[in-house]
Write a protein that binds this DNA or RNA. Structure first.
Lengths: 210, 210
DNA sequence: ACATCCTAATGCAGTGACTGCAAGTATTGA
DNA sequence: TCAATACTTGCAGTCACTGCATTAGGATGT
């Protein structure tokens, strides 16, 4: 169709990566609203239609295609654990590292691009909401476990779903905090917060709140 | 221009209200994605340009133009209070009741329309994020007050901003929970949750988490 | 009564995100 | 070598949204 070797000049993964890279670079340079899909397409050497074949939305090209997932093994440990719930729960959400080794730099630049725009942060958080249901179930399982071990009565058991729900929402708050701190540190080249550090702040705060 | 008495045939408020009503009704009937701005305009008897003069986005016409605001007086009480922080903080966010008396039914229908769509719920929550900064400041003031009263040392004072931040995020979680429960109840004609009820669940949960 | 100003409403033309459909071409497997 | 398959593309169209220029009523001042 074109003079170029039209189709299949590279694998799917390569095309996707090219689009991602172009998106991140352009957004860093011009800001999210200063970049059009057409600009990305030109930079990545693909048609607009191809862009939308690879990414559902312009957002997705910047945020990356990977939705957060729950780490199955961590979930099993979590359910039977007796430690600080919120702090431990943070470990449940795994940021898929399969992309990192190939392009660690891209990830860092992407974070800078995203954190520059509050709207995008919010969009990122919407994605987190997609696994909230799963999270709720796990939390409920754990609460039930503990209640049974403690010999709870029926009324206490009946209250668990509600408690699991609110806990999940609290958890979402914590994760937002972690994500924010994470990107803030990344901007300054500082190491990301580890579980212990989060648990520390969280523990102090919870003591004040209760 | 048209055969109709072109402009100024009703006050601003009336036009705005007409658009809001048309939007809610149409969304209830066809779902958010099944409704176009043009449909709303036809139903409300205005041009598309007028629609966008009254509302920045299609969302806004459904969610209502009122952003959540902080209740100043409640904030002052909150800062010096010593009660359960999270539960009390819920009272800070005021849902502007100035719209309700005129059209209580519309509000109920609007809630139904919004809660039917998870995306819209999320969008609604984004609005909450807009006052998060304000909220953070208030929380920080309160934490500082309490720390001073307790005779805290420098290290403890230095930790306060971080604690305020995470608390705000936790608070956002609680408010999401309240909003969700609220709309869920509204759907079934049940009374909305009051502060005491929220405080109750919250208290129990926090005791388990700490 | 008349000119004036202001405001709400409108038309129009354009941009940008996104979709469905119908090809076309390179790669793969039989 | 032929055919199924996988990627890619162009094209036409929809929809949200914006800027600009224009028009029509109403309110105001003299």
């Amino acid at each position: 169709m074109s003079t170029e070797p039209g189709a299949r000049r590279r694998g799917v993964a390569e095309t996707t990566a090219a689009i991602e890279r172009a998106t991140v670079e352009l957004v860093l340079e011009h800001g999210y609203d200063g970049v059009t899909v057409d600009m990305i397409c030109r930079a990545a050497g693909v048609s607009q239609r191809t862009f939308f074949n690879h990414f559902k939305t312009k957002d997705a090209a910047l945020l990356g295609p990977d939705l957060p997932r729950i780490d199955e093994r961590a979930a099993r440990e979590f359910i039977v654990s007796d430690g600080p719930l919120l702090a431990e729960a943070v470990g449940l959400v795994r940021i898929d590292p399969s992309k990192l080794p190939g392009d660690a730099g891209l990830m860092a630049r992407r974070i800078r691009a995203i954190s520059g725009n509050p709207l995008l942060m919010a969009r990122q958080m919407e994605r987190l909401a997609e696994i909230e249901g799963e999270l709720r179930e796990i939390v409920e399982l754990r609460l039930r476990q503990q209640a049974l071990r403690a010999g709870a009565d029926e009324a206490e058991l009946a209250a668990i779903p509600d408690e699991a729900e609110i806990t999940t929402h609290l958890l979402a708050g914590v994760m937002r905090y972690v994500g924010l701190t994470w990107s803030r540190r990344a901007e300054q080249g500082a190491p990301p917060p580890d579980g212990a550090e989060v648990a520390d702040v969280l523990g102090r705060v919870l003591r004040k709140l209760a």
